[in-house]
C-alpha cells in the first residue's frame, strides 16, 4: 500500500501496519476464532493468550455462535502471552483528539491507552479490528464487564445501530431504557427487575437500533452492583463473579451463568425511556419528561464514555428520542418496590 500523505496519513499507515502485524501474529499463535452474534452484531474473535481470551469472552459467552459468523473480525493480542509488547504512541500530535491518543477518520479509528499500554484499532474498510495490550493480567478488573466496547462502538458508527450507555429491562418482548449518569440507580433497578421476573438486555451498555420501531439487544451479560445494592438485594450474593475484587470495584454478576433466562436473547421492542434518580421515598413515581431532558441524560455520558463518532451518535440518539416518550423515574427506597413500579409501567405502556 502506498504511504498516505501528511501527519494524519502517517498515523493511518501506522494503524494499518498494526493491523497487518496483528493478522500475522494471530495466524501464527491464535486458536480458531470464537464467534459471537447478538441482534445486528456479529463478529469473530481470535485471541493470543488464554487468560486474555477468558477475560474478553466471559461477558460475551451468552452470544457465542459457532462457527464464527461472517462479519467483523477482531484480533486480541496479549503481549505477556507471546504476542510481544505493542508499540507506544510515538506519533505526530496534530489534532486535539490526539491528546487523548485518539485518531479518527471515516474508515479508521484507533486509540492508545498509555496506562495499560493498549492499542485498539478498527478499520471499517478491512472489517478488521485489534486490541493489543502489553499484559492482559494488568488490565483493570472493570474491563471484564464490557470487553471490546470501544471497538464495537466504533464499528456501530458505520451501521444503523449504536451502543448506548443505558440499561434495558422488559417483559413480554417490550422494554424500557433506563438512562442516567453513574449513581442514578440503573444497575440496582435492573438487578431488582430481574429478581422480579423481568428480562434485560444489560445494565450499562446496550445495542440499540434507533429507527422506528426501536429495539434493544444485549451486548454484555453483566450487572454491576456496589456493596449497598448487594446488601439491599442479598439473593445476588451467591452469583458474584469477582468475590476477591479490589475494594473500589463493584461486584460483577454474569446473567449468562447466574440467570440465563433473564437475558432477552431476541431483544426487546422499546416503548419508552425512563430517567431514574434516587428519591428515597416510600414509593417510586413516574412522571413525563421532555425529549431534551432524555437527551441530556443519555447522550453526554454515552459520548464521553465511548470516544469517537460523536456526530453520528448524536444524530442516532436524537432519532431515538423523537420516537420514544420519556419519563422521570423517582426511585423509592426499596429496589423491589421500584421494580414493581417499572413492571406496572411496562404493562400499561
Amino acid at each position: 500500500m502506498a504511504a498516505r500523505a501528511g501527519a494524519s496519513g502517517a498515523i493511518d499507515d501506522f494503524m494499518d501496519a498494526l493491523l497487518d502485524r496483528a493478522e500475522a501474529l494471530a495466524a501464527r499463535h491464535a486458536p480458531p476464532a470464537d464467534g459471537f452474534a447478538s441482534g445486528p452484531l456479529a463478529f469473530g474473535l481470535r485471541t493470543v493468550g488464554a487468560g486474555y481470551r477468558k477475560r474478553l469472552t466471559t461477558a460475551l459467552a451468552f452470544a457465542r455462535n459457532t462457527p464464527a459468523p461472517i462479519g467483523l473480525r477482531v484480533i486480541a493480542l496479549d503481549g505477556a502471552a507471546g504476542a510481544g509488547d505493542p508499540p507506544g504512541w510515538d506519533l505526530p500530535v496534530t489534532e486535539p483528539a490526539h491528546l487523548e491518543r485518539l485518531h479518527e477518520r471515516p474508515g479508521l479509528v484507533g486509540r492508545y491507552d498509555p496506562d495499560t499500554r493498549t492499542w485498539r484499532v478498527l478499520s471499517r474498510a478491512r472489517n478488521l479490528a485489534l486490541t493489543w495490550t502489553a499484559d492482559a493480567a494488568a488490565l483493570p478488573e472493570w474491563e471484564d464487564s464490557c470487553p471490546l466496547r470501544d471497538i464495537l462502538h466504533w464499528h456501530s458508527a458505520g451501521t444503523d445501530w449504536l451502543l448506548l450507555h443505558a440499561a434495558c429491562v422488559g417483559a413480554g418482548g417490550a422494554g424500557v431504557l433506563l438512562t442516567g449518569a453513574g449513581g442514578s440507580g440503573k444497575s440496582t433497578t435492573t438487578a431488582a427487575c430481574v429478581l422480579a421476573g423481568l428480562a434485560t438486555t444489560g445494565d450499562d451498555f446496550v445495542l440499540v437500533r434507533p429507527q422506528a420501531p426501536p429495539r434493544a439487544h444485549a451486548l454484555f451479560d453483566t450487572i454491576k452492583l456496589d456493596d449497598a445494592s448487594l446488601a439491599a438485594l442479598p439473593s445476588w450474593r451467591t452469583a458474584v463473579a469477582n468475590p476477591a475484587r479490589p475494594h473500589d470495584q463493584k461486584a460483577r454478576l454474569h446473567l449468562g451463568q447466574a440467570r440465563p433466562g433473564a437475558l432477552a436473547r431476541d431483544g426487546l421492542a422499546l416503548k419508552a425511556v425512563l430517567l431514574p434518580h434516587v428519591a428515597g421515598t416510600a414509593r417510586s413515581r413516574i412522571a413525563p419528561a421532555s425529549p431534551a431532558e432524555a437527551l441530556r441524560a443519555l447522550a453526554p455520558s454515552t459520548m464521553f464514555l465511548l470516544r469517537g463518532g460523536a456526530a453520528s451518535g448524536m444524530a442516532k440518539i436524537g432519532a431515538l428520542l423523537r420516537t420514544l416518550p420519556a419519563f422521570h423515574l423517582a426511585l423509592g427506597a426499596d429496589p423491589m418496590e421500584a421494580a414493581a413500579a417499572v413492571a406496572d409501567f411496562l404493562e400499561r405502556a
Partner: peptide
C-alpha cells in the same frame, strides 16, 4: 460540539 434540537430546547455536547 455535537448538537440536537427539539421543540424549544437545543442540547449541545
Amino acid at each position: 460540539v455535537a448538537h440536537e434540537a427539539f421543540d424549544e430546547e437545543t442540547v449541545l455536547i
